[in-house]
């Protein structure tokens, strides 16, 4: 464990807490749309469920296991909240990204490009590829509405920072322990790249107190 990875994981936790806060806040304003993509959240739940199939077989550390359990539980909880409890705040008319294509694409690629052709490995690889593109429905929703609330932008910023720090962590690990993981690296680079546009607007507008609006 290094500082980059630790802070990255903590930012991931922060993003989840921001999301829960945001949903709680949206519910208190009757009839309002949350503008959180249900599809993105459902994809994240799928990512965690397919990645941590080694939860009981592969023990790394108490930290590792606790985080895995938290990510699985919180992602399922968020999906549950959006689907049942806060259903009214969720507007499917804005959430129109064709998620089935990225699920199909990730599944096909996982069957072709993987480290070993076993059920667990293919599921793990699928989760890596799917995570890389899971934010797309949310970003697509953002471009559709053309603007975002501050709390939503903080959520995306926390997620983007978590991914960016993982890139730094991999460079650090390569030099210090000759750690290599091509599948994770390439998928991670793609995933971080998706946040570039968002980061640009976040830094030039939101941090200066302006509203998040697309040009």
């Amino acid at each position: 464990m290094n500082l980059f990875r630790l802070v990255a994981d903590l930012m991931h936790l922060v993003s989840i807490f921001i999301l829960l806060l945001k949903m709680q806040k949206t519910r208190s304003v009757a009839g309002r749309c949350s503008r959180i993509s249900f599809k993105t959240q459902a994809l994240y739940a799928t990512v965690f469920l397919t990645r941590y199939t080694d939860l009981f077989a592969n023990f790394q550390s108490l930290y590792n296991t606790t985080m895995k359990v938290f990510f699985i539980a919180s992602s399922l909880y968020i999906v549950f909240l959006m689907k049942f409890k806060f259903k009214a705040t969720n507007d499917p008319r804005l959430d129109t990204f064709k998620a089935q294509y990225v699920v199909g694409g990730a599944a096909a690629l996982a069957l072709i490009v993987n480290y070993a052709f076993t059920v667990q490995e293919v599921l793990w690889t699928f989760s890596i590829y799917l995570e890389a593109v899971a934010i797309l429905p949310q970003l697509f929703m953002l471009t559709k509405t053309g603007e975002a609330e501050v709390i939503t932008t903080h959520y995306l910023f926390a997620l983007g920072t978590y991914r960016g720090l993982y890139l730094v962590n991999w460079i650090y690990r390569y030099w210090t322990e000759y750690y290599v993981d091509w599948i994770v690296w390439i998928a991670g680079a793609v995933q971080t790249g998706l946040y570039c546009d968002f980061f640009y607007i976040y830094f030039t507008k939101v941090l200066k107190g302006a509203k998040f609006e697309l040009p």
Partner: peptide
């Protein structure tokens, strides 16, 4: 050198 993937990340 080829190293086995550790899978110690989240």
């Amino acid at each position: 050198p080829r190293q086995r993937i550790k899978k110690d990340e989240l």
